[in-house]
Design a binder for these strands. Structure first.
Lengths: 196, 196
DNA sequence: GCGCGCATATGATTTCGATCATATCGTTGG
DNA sequence: CCAACGATATGATCGAAATCATATGCGCGC
């Protein structure tokens, strides 16, 4: 869990609770940014609607995630936010957050570190998506996962992993099967062992 | 140009110059992080070498870009940095940067804003990569570009754009041709006009 | 001027992942 | 217990992008 809350909590700011049901909108493009949101429980999707009618999902913010970090430095939103299900949010008044960060350099540094980590993770993900072959993509992903002596625990269904990888679940199963055939990996119960 | 320099300059830090030729290495995985680098002129690629011998490019830092932001908060590097050509770098001592940011909350905030912008851009790029169809991907990319009354100036070869889009240049040319056929765009000299 | 490299552009063929279909297994709930 | 559902798994087919091939135009150096 990405615990952004621990970064803002020490600031001792006023906070309000917000609750959204599936499909409800938190803000829309162009709206003034008055608050900074953290997803406490649930999921909020950030959607950008393109002029041609299509839409792309910029961020899918789950438990503990900071919503639209860039909004802290922008007057208005550049995308829409929509709850993907029952969602509880924490809202902090933006001006107070900025003032507090100015007054507390340690907190600003901590947040900076958090942003840096997110950047690193996103860069890794982008690099992964640049790999064309399903097999190599899955292998690269496995190699990036935290491993214990070559053993990588897989705690969620492959179907979900497939989504993160930008592949269909069929493609992932096939890639795994090929990797086993080629002796690149071994499959254990709820885990994968790398042989590279 | 991503001018990260203007964020560190006001701190009045000691700086040193570094020069690399094509293929030269700035740092390698595991090395201690002693300095923070900004690319003054040229390009540095951040490469992560996978255990199986493959390599993925995490970041391609061009003029004015901050190199491996996350290194500011890490003791050692998690990737290799290699110059893609003749490259001039500015190096700032990491501890001094951190101290200065602690002492100057405005500078920390400014850097935070920069990181937030980078996050936003990366999110947009990642979302783009999620679009399968070459045609829609190119269209979405065009719609994200800064435009002046629907006119988008293209200042670099399509070949390079293709790389950013994760497509081959042939696919991009074909997508552009289709979009013109379907009257979604018009092609001007060194520019594209959106008709959506 | 001429040759060379590069961007642009498009045709032909191949490859590989998406899609559709199907089957098994394990869990969960009535 | 058994029906229902979801995860796992694999086969068949299709389509779209990669790859390979080729051609033109443009700028640049000799």
């Amino acid at each position: 869990m990405i615990d952004s809350l621990s970064l803002l909590e020490p600031l001792g700011l006023r906070r309000s609770l917000r609750h959204l049901s599936a499909g409800e909108t938190l803000f829309t493009t162009g709206a003034r940014v008055a608050e900074l949101f953290i997803v406490e429980k649930g999921r909020v999707d950030l959607i950008r609607h393109m002029p041609d009618g299509n839409a792309i999902r910029l961020q899918s913010a789950g438990d503990g995630a900071l919503l639209a970090e860039a909004s802290l430095f922008s007057d208005s939103y550049h995308c829409d936010a929509e709850a993907a299900g029952e969602t509880a949010l924490l809202a902090f008044p933006k001006p107070e957050v900025l003032d507090a960060l100015k007054a507390r350099p340690d907190a600003a540094l901590a947040l900076l570190g958090h942003f840096a980590g997110r950047l690193q993770a996103l860069r890794a993900q982008a690099a992964l998506f640049g790999i064309r072959s399903a097999q190599e993509r899955v292998l690269a992903w496995l190699q990036l996962q935290p491993s214990d002596a070559g053993i990588i625990a897989i705690d969620r269904p492959w179907k979900q992993v497939a989504g993160e990888l930008g592949l269909t679940h069929e493609a992932v199963y096939r890639a795994l099967a090929s990797l086993v055939r080629e002796r690149m990996i071994e499959r254990l119960d709820g885990a994968v062992k790398l042989r590279v």
